[in-house]
Design a protein around this nucleic acid. Sequence first.
DNA 1: GGCGGACTTGACACCGTGTCAAGCGTTTCC
DNA 2: GGAAACGCTTGACACGGTGTCAAGTCCGCC
Lengths: 208, 208
Amino acid sequence: MPRSKDESTRTLILKACRRLLEAGPGQAVRMSDVAKAAGVSRQAVYLHFPKRADLLVETARHIDAEEDVDARLAPSRAAKDGLSRLDLYIEAWGNYIPVVMPTARALIAMSDTDEDARAAWDNRMAAMRHGCEAAVRALKNDGRLTPELEADRATDLLWSLLSVDHWDNLVGRCGWSQPDYIAQIQRLARAALVKPAPQARTPRITSL
Amino acid sequence: MPRSKDESTRTLILKACRRLLEAGPGQAVRMSDVAKAAGVSRQAVYLHFPKRADLLVETARHIDAEEDVDARLAPSRAAKDGLSRLDLYIEAWGNYIPVVMPTARALIAMSDTDEDARAAWDNRMAAMRHGCEAAVRALKNDGRLTPELEADRATDLLWSLLSVDHWDNLVGRCGWSQPDYIAQIQRLARAALVKPAPQARTPRITSL
DNA sequence: GGCGGACTTGACACCGTGTCAAGCGTTTCC
DNA sequence: GGAAACGCTTGACACGGTGTCAAGTCCGCC
């Protein structure tokens, strides 16, 4: 099934697509552009990806595989307490956003018109939400979830704080650095979701 | 310049455009659709709005005028202390979002390809940011801005919390009610930006 | 009466997506 | 060795939506 060399035409196209999306913020990235960049005919692209939406969806998957998104999220899953799980999840996902961002934007733009693109994107967002849900649950188990919020409300909030739009607003438009973004979202999430630690036995005023 | 009746063709078109945008979430709203809905020829639309981007931009302005956005924002400007200014600004803008949302979405979608649409939308966002800036400044003057944040950082954060994406995530996707959304954003903004009141003279533990 | 402005009608160019058909060069398998 | 199968190329075309153009119609109004 490969053409001849070690790289199949399919992955050649996916890599070209990714490269184009990452290169030009505000670029069109038409099917013909991808074909040209992959050094392949326009029809070859359609041969592997019948619709443009398919190409974008598969590009996103390809990035997930190349960047090993699972490995990135593993530390948060292994966290011992709710608070560190929250922090680690924010760190992992927050640092993954810039990686998928270009493809995400293209996919979101298609979602307005294309049903498949919408479904694919919703799916990704649902997966991300599960991570938020797990973090909130861990927090709740530790008795550290703020009493002002139901678990699902807290999940919604965290999910929205970690949305790619939010990242784009702060990093893309406001010019925040990536570490600043991570730190501020962690601070924000704590402020919004976490209640102060039950200061156990000895009632001392601690400033942390 | 009016055609004959009390309503000029121009406003007829703008109203039709608004109606269509509000009617169909996920609808295309092509130039021909607007023309049909306004009971006018497609070319009449182009006569008043040379490009589709122009039509959308003017529709947004038209909504601002019809809904008197300035009057809505007046209370926050009149607020006496920073904290209430923050709350009132969130309430005013947060309640305005659903009004402009449909048009906003169309404008944002165009921003990917159309430079004018992008500029127009950026402009609106800049105006909204000024409101955030004012609220943060008022907070700072009261000595209630959290020491963890510079004023411009705080403005960025508030601005992003009040973005239409955020509203769309929480209300549109998560199904929050409008009052819930307002209350939670207010809570979130306080948690993120406001430091506890300097408990003046008498050091009593207050739970508010 | 005739002028000018607002609008209509119908045609057309352009661009990007998606489709189709025929052809070409390798590989594979009998 | 020959034929079928496969992966890809070439070139054409339909479609839908935007934007343009030119001619024509219907007004009110000086």
